[in-house]
């Protein structure tokens, strides 16, 4: 149970609450018994189907009832329906899950049923347009999932569903559109790491597919990140994304430039943990991958700088003191 506040009741209040709950309990138990009895009897009637709707409204996590509902659809309703009726039925199923998702946006079983619906859209509307229904319904899904992400921009069920829709919809949307979407989400809230994560995936595919020039696009990303860093240097989402952008640190010039830029921010915000932590990380990348381009004196000063920052981090971020001690020991050992 998540986020349900504890309430203290007096003995009388508790008794009154119990009384009130008894009626609900009785109703639920009778629904529960009915639906399981029908299921055990292999009842695939319209009544049984309607009963599953009622049970799922009372308890959307009842996976056995979702399974039973699909059994009725597959074995009884679909075989006795025209393609057009099946199409309408899928529409009804999607509506049921939409209303349930509004109340329970994090219930796996509802999202799962939605996926199942999409996989069961019949061919049609006509022999010359077999994909028509599929295209229309899948396109609408993006709208639904955007509504869900407007309500909770970090809902990982919704993000996973979004990626599923984008990857499987019959008429693919250009990947650039998804880049625009992540920009919108990030600009609404820099802390939304789910959107930064999605952005890293979208950009990777655009670079690999030759749809964006990686060099130019990375420079734009560095600008975006810098802006976010200056807005809130304490927000870890941005720093994690920055680490992805720098990657293995093979580009010597970029590494040096980013170190200088973070140093500048640190000078303005001398207690910024993320500035310090990132400087240690990038300076160590320099030492690891570019030792030959550095003079002996440079290497020594980078090492000293890392150790000094790690000592500072132990003071301002004591929760992770042991990590900084371990990193310092490592820096000393390697250099």
């Amino acid at each position: 149970m998540h986020g349900v506040k504890r309430v203290r009741y007096s003995r009388e209040a508790l008794e009154a609450k119990k009384q009130k709950e008894q009626a609900k309990l009785k109703e639920y138990l009778s629904l529960n018994d009915d639906v399981l009895a029908k299921r055990n009897a292999g009842d695939w009637s319209k009544d049984a189907f309607d009963l599953t709707t009622r049970v799922l409204h009372a308890n959307a996590e009842f996976y056995t009832v979702w399974n039973y509902r699909r059994d009725i659809l597959i074995n009884s309703i679909f075989p006795n329906s025209s393609p057009s009726e099946v199409h309408d039925r899928i529409g009804d199923e999607l509506s049921v899950t939409t209303s349930l998702l509004k109340q329970h946006p994090k219930v796996y079983g509802i999202w799962n049923h939605r996926r199942w619906c999409l996989a069961n859209i019949p061919d049609g509307p006509s022999d010359t347009d077999l994909d028509g229904w599929r295209k229309t319904i899948w396109n609408k899904e993006l709208y639904v999932v955007e509504k869900m992400l407007d309500a909770d921009a970090r809902n990982f069920h919704a993000w996973n569903y979004r990626r599923y829709v984008l990857a499987n919809m019959p008429m693919k949307r250009p990947a650039q559109a998804e880049l625009v979407y992540t920009t919108r989400k990030i600009e609404a809230n820099f802390s939304n790491f789910s959107a930064w994560h999605q952005r890293s995936k979208v950009l990777t595919s655009l670079w690999e597919g030759g749809q964006l020039d990686p060099h130019k696009s990375k420079e734009e990303e560095f600008d975006l990140v810098k802006n976010a860093m200056y807005t809130d240097p304490g927000d870890q989402s941005v720093w994690i994304y920055h680490r992805w952008l720098v990657g293995a640190g093979n580009a010597y010039d970029i590494l040096q430039r980013e170190i200088a830029s973070i140093q500048e921010l640190l000078d303005e915000q001398p207690d910024s943990k993320w500035c310090m932590e990132s400087l240690v990380f990038y300076k160590r990348l320099l030492l690891r991958h570019h030792a030959r381009q550095l003079s002996e004196a440079d290497r020594l000063s980078l090492t000293q700088e890392c150790l000094r920052l790690l000592t500072g981090l132990q003071d301002i971020d004591p929760n992770r003191r042991q990590r900084y001690e371990d990193l310092a020991a490592d820096v000393k050992k390697i250099n």
Binding site: R154, F156, S191, D235, S237, I240, R320, R323, D326
Partner: peptide
Amino acid sequence: RPEKLEDVCYSFWVLSSMSILKKIRWVD
């Protein structure tokens, strides 16, 4: 996940992973 609220159940999800990586000392 980054920038989310604390929750007791993550005590296990995070700590078990850290124990497996032998880095459990990296939290307070």
